[in-house]
Computed example of a mutant assay.
Amino acid sequence: MTNSEIYIYILIMAGVSMMIRIVPLTLIQKQIKSRFVQSFLYYVPYITLAVMTFPAIVNATQSPLSGTLALFVGIVAAWFGASLFQVAVSCCCSVFILELFIL
């Protein structure tokens, strides 16, 4: 791969990234009044984050079993009102204990 090819790829990537941001701004100039579209756009970032995060939680450990257990421990801790730090610590401890003693 030559330097000129790399610059062409970077320019194409920059152009696509800009078009993704510019086209909606130019096509949609009025406020969106549809409740369905508004709610859809509201939840898109959360869904995207969940789709990227949940597989990583399970696959980041040595065994999928410990990752799955950590996911359930985190869900239960968050359900009972634990802070983000407490949820993270409980998940890390559950993975550490499971992989240290059981696996």
Rank of each mutant, 00 (worst) to 15 (best):
A78S: 11
V44C: 04
P55K: 02
S94Q: 04
P45S: 10
V89S: 07
F36I: 13
F85L: 08
S66D: 06
V23D: 15
S90H: 05
I75E: 01
V89A: 11
I8A: 06
Q31F: 06
I32N: 02
I57P: 05
A14Q: 01
V76D: 02
A14I: 01
I57D: 12
M52D: 05
F40M: 09
S63G: 12
I8S: 04
G67M: 04
I22K: 11
I28V: 14
T2S: 15
V73T: 13
P45V: 03
N3R: 14
G74N: 03
I8M: 05
K33R: 10
I57R: 03
L103K: 08
P55F: 06
I20Q: 04
A56C: 10
C91M: 15
L84D: 11
I75C: 08
M1T: 02
L71E: 03
L84N: 14
F40Y: 09
L27A: 04
E99R: 11
Y46N: 12
I102T: 10
V51I: 14
T61D: 13
Y42V: 07
V95W: 00
S90F: 10
I8F: 08
S17K: 01
Q38C: 10
L25N: 12
E99V: 14
A70R: 00
I47A: 07
A78Q: 04
Q38R: 11
I97R: 01
N59T: 13
Y9F: 09
F101C: 12
V95Q: 03
Q38D: 04
Y46D: 11
W79Y: 12
I57E: 15
A78T: 03
S94H: 01
A60E: 12
L98F: 12
A88I: 00
Y42C: 07
K30N: 11
E5S: 11
I97Q: 02
Y43H: 10
L27G: 02
G67R: 02
A77R: 00
Y9P: 02
I102R: 00
T48V: 15
F72V: 14
S34A: 12
